[in-house]
């Protein structure tokens, strides 16, 4: 396993803020792994995703290092795909789906529009959009939230990047669609041998498929390690709290169960 990126002593401070959003982070990203970045609001997990992707807003101060094994940071769109929480804001409302998915392939793979459209159609089939031919000509508002997120994934992967960052990509979706999208991401990343950085507030969701997890709180890295090891024997109190706060269908109910 080779290290794709060594993050060392990384601190990010947004413009006008005194307290850094990320505070002296040390973390390795391993090539080909599925790494889950887990944290609650304000933990710095999205800031980390944006720092890695080179998508921090203007005026954000960055200290420390990100050493990429390739010698230079990945180019967003070509080397790195990004899927955001809200697909409506990451898709252009006035371009049809075909053009949006084809654009990345055309620009970064040097394809003609015609070939890029062929690739876009193939991508829509890969992400299992219903009626892909028809979807090529549809506009984002004509699709459901889950379908839009599939389109965003197709667009992110159109240029065959080696890294995919999914930032709360399933949080705005209902549970059934969330489960479908997670298994789709898992499958696509596995097949292409991509590195997946999966940002989530949901430790259980991450526990189901991530190779490693990194737990963040208030801009600090609390702990990181192999998923099973961190979940089975967390070394930090905060990780234990997160695990204890999780509710699933095995958690005892809060109500007295005899119906009134």
């Amino acid at each position: 396993m080779s290290t794709l990126c060594e993050i060392r002593d990384l601190t990010v401070t947004y413009r006008g803020q005194r307290i850094p959003a990320l505070n002296r982070i040390d973390l390795d990203i391993v090539a080909g792994e599925r790494l889950a970045i887990i944290g609650e609001s304000g933990s710095g997990k999205s800031t980390l995703a944006r720092a890695v992707a080179g998508l921090l807003p203007l005026g954000a101060k960055l200290a420390g290092e990100m050493r990429w094994s390739s010698g230079q940071p990945p180019l967003p769109g070509r080397d790195l795909g990004f899927v955001f929480q809200d697909p409506s804001s990451s898709l252009n409302p006035v371009l049809d789906i075909g053009e949006q998915v084809a654009e990345g392939a055309r620009r970064h793979l040097g394809l003609s529009w015609k070939t890029a459209y062929v690739r876009a159609l193939k991508m829509l089939e890969r992400v299992r959009i219903a009626e892909p031919q028809k979807a090529m000509r549809a506009f984002p508002h004509q699709l459901s939230g889950g379908q839009r997120q599939r389109v965003a994934i197709a667009a992110a992967l159109a240029a065959k990047p080696g890294i995919l960052i999914a930032d709360e990509a399933t949080s705005a979706l209902d549970m059934v669609v969330q489960a479908e999208i997670v298994s789709l991401l898992d499958e696509l990343v596995r097949e292409a041998g991509m590195t997946l950085i999966f940002i989530t507030h949901d430790i259980a969701l991450a526990s189901g498929f991530a190779d490693r997890v990194a737990i963040f709180k208030d801009g600090n890295l609390v702990e990181s390690g192999l998923t099973g090891n961190v979940l089975a024997s967390p070394s930090e109190a905060y990780t234990r709290t997160l695990i204890a706060s999780h509710r699933d269908l095995a958690t005892p109910p809060l109500i007295r169960e005899a119906a009134p």
Binding site: V30, R212, L226, G228, L231, D248, L249, A250
Partner: peptide, 22 residues
């Protein structure tokens, strides 16, 4: 049935697979 199956379960088994020895 779909809603029941979609609830994420907390998996706390030690990790298996290619990254076991990282």
């Amino acid at each position: 049935k779909a809603l029941v199956n979609a609830v994420p379960r907390l998996v706390t088994q030690p990790t298996e697979g290619p990254f076991h020895d990282v």
